[in-house]
Amino acid sequence: MATLFSHLLVLLTLATGLVWAFDHYLLRPKRLSQVAALEANGTVALDPDKRDELLREGPIAENCHAVFPVLAVVLVLRSFLYEPFQIPSGSMMPTLLVGDFILVEKFSYGIKDPVWRKTLMETGKPERGDIAVFKYPQDPSIDYIKRVIGLPGDTVVYSNKELYIKPACPSGQGCEPLRAVSRALVNRDEFYHSGVALQRHREQLSEVTHDILINPRQRDRVEYYYPQPGTQTGEFVVPEGQYFVLGDNRDNSTDGRFWGFVDESLLVGKAVFIWMSFEFDRNADSILPGWIPTGVRFDRIGGLE
């Protein structure tokens, strides 16, 4: 949907801009010439209102003239600076909840054109711990949001609900060994899934501290893990130019464990801010449609980490 909207926005901006330019640079000079000829001949008395009427754009050009600047500003903001997204699922709980509306910084991972997504300018690369929005590798028309865990050259292991990382070591000297990512239990009664209390852990991922959820009763679905040649089940060696991502809700997230890696060409931007958060808590017998919010979570508005 986001891709379709981007393409539609580009087409509308281009169409209204062309209509406005055609009228401004081709038709308006002709209208000016006609008015000048009438005034020079003196055959018609042109008061200000009559002159404005003769110079006025047609209804289509007039509307395009009014709409084009607005569309152009929205296109620039949305394509190159910040784009709003809505969180549709719980795969990034507890960091992001269903009903959160976030801003994604589009220029964090390079400035790309809004149609073909070719990089126009390099501005930065994802860092471990970033919350990244990207095109789903198996269907680029869908936007996904996950946390960046593995950088190019890293070895990532996920086994028995424990995360291990061995950072890339191009020089081959002084390389760090495979180490477990440290985490500490926060609580086990805040979030539930199908009646099961989820464990909330605080995880230290490089310089980023964030919380994750673990379902102690759900086994790892290792039979569905992405089978990377030359590695064991649950082991992922991140190729150059690609990234390995996980959801913070570890047992309720379809992420890199199941479909592999995110190519840097698929990166959309970095999630940086929650600008609105709606809650949808209602009883099963409520007559209101499910998409109508029941409240606003003002305490969730703010920056992300």
Rank of each mutant, 00 (worst) to 15 (best):
residue 137 P to H: 01
residue 28 R to G: 03
residue 36 A to L: 07
residue 136 Y to F: 13
residue 119 T to R: 15
residue 252 N to K: 09
residue 161 K to T: 09
residue 283 N to K: 13
residue 167 P to V: 07
residue 303 G to Y: 07
residue 259 W to Y: 14
residue 118 K to W: 14
residue 46 L to H: 05
residue 233 T to G: 13
residue 224 Y to H: 15
residue 249 N to I: 11
residue 242 Q to G: 05
residue 42 G to S: 00
residue 21 A to D: 06
residue 160 N to C: 09
residue 270 K to G: 07
residue 158 Y to F: 15
residue 109 Y to M: 04
residue 112 K to I: 04
residue 131 I to H: 02
residue 258 F to G: 06
residue 29 P to R: 12
residue 170 P to I: 12
residue 166 K to I: 03
residue 212 I to S: 02
residue 282 R to I: 02
residue 60 I to P: 00
residue 172 G to V: 09
residue 275 W to K: 09
residue 96 L to C: 03
residue 154 D to M: 10
residue 46 L to W: 10
residue 34 Q to G: 14
residue 113 D to Y: 08
residue 104 V to W: 02
residue 168 A to H: 11
residue 275 W to C: 00
residue 7 H to K: 12
residue 27 L to K: 12
residue 213 L to V: 08
residue 162 E to S: 15
residue 163 L to N: 01
residue 18 L to H: 05
residue 258 F to C: 11
residue 5 F to I: 15
residue 246 L to S: 07
residue 120 L to I: 13
residue 100 D to I: 06
residue 295 G to F: 09
residue 216 P to R: 03
residue 300 R to F: 11
residue 85 F to E: 07
residue 199 Q to W: 13
residue 112 K to F: 02
residue 282 R to P: 06
residue 44 V to R: 14
residue 273 F to V: 07
residue 93 M to K: 12
residue 37 A to T: 10
residue 255 D to Y: 08
residue 131 I to C: 08
residue 136 Y to Q: 04
residue 254 T to E: 10
residue 160 N to K: 15
residue 49 D to K: 13
residue 84 P to A: 00
residue 181 V to C: 05
residue 197 A to W: 12
residue 303 G to N: 01
residue 210 H to Y: 11
residue 187 N to Y: 05
residue 217 R to D: 15
residue 78 R to V: 14
residue 265 S to D: 13
residue 116 W to H: 07
residue 30 K to I: 11
residue 150 G to Q: 11
residue 112 K to C: 07
residue 191 F to R: 05
residue 155 T to K: 15
residue 46 L to S: 08
residue 251 D to A: 11
residue 243 Y to T: 04
residue 75 L to D: 00
residue 97 L to D: 10
residue 6 S to G: 03
residue 86 Q to E: 14
residue 108 S to Y: 04
residue 6 S to M: 12
residue 137 P to L: 10
residue 281 D to I: 10
residue 190 E to I: 01
residue 143 D to M: 05
residue 139 D to T: 04
residue 60 I to S: 04
residue 213 L to P: 01
residue 38 L to R: 05
residue 210 H to R: 07
residue 96 L to E: 02
residue 47 D to F: 00
residue 43 T to C: 08
residue 99 G to D: 06
residue 223 E to P: 02
residue 155 T to H: 11
residue 239 P to I: 08
residue 274 I to K: 12
residue 174 G to K: 10
residue 261 F to H: 06
residue 184 A to P: 03
residue 84 P to C: 01
residue 299 D to G: 09
residue 63 N to E: 02
residue 242 Q to H: 13
residue 76 V to K: 04
residue 267 L to Q: 01
residue 176 E to G: 01
residue 213 L to E: 06
residue 303 G to C: 01
residue 182 S to D: 15
residue 297 R to V: 02
residue 186 V to E: 12
residue 110 G to K: 11
residue 283 N to L: 06
residue 163 L to D: 06
residue 212 I to W: 02
residue 25 Y to K: 03
residue 76 V to E: 03
residue 93 M to H: 06
residue 227 P to D: 14
residue 8 L to M: 12
residue 156 V to G: 05
residue 189 D to Q: 13
residue 19 V to N: 02
residue 98 V to H: 05
residue 50 K to H: 10
residue 54 L to H: 03
residue 222 V to S: 14
residue 173 Q to D: 04
residue 136 Y to N: 00
residue 128 R to V: 10
residue 172 G to T: 07
residue 263 D to P: 07
residue 10 V to G: 02
residue 173 Q to I: 00
residue 16 T to E: 04
residue 181 V to W: 05
residue 147 R to S: 03
residue 301 I to M: 08
residue 71 L to H: 00
residue 286 S to K: 11
residue 129 G to W: 09
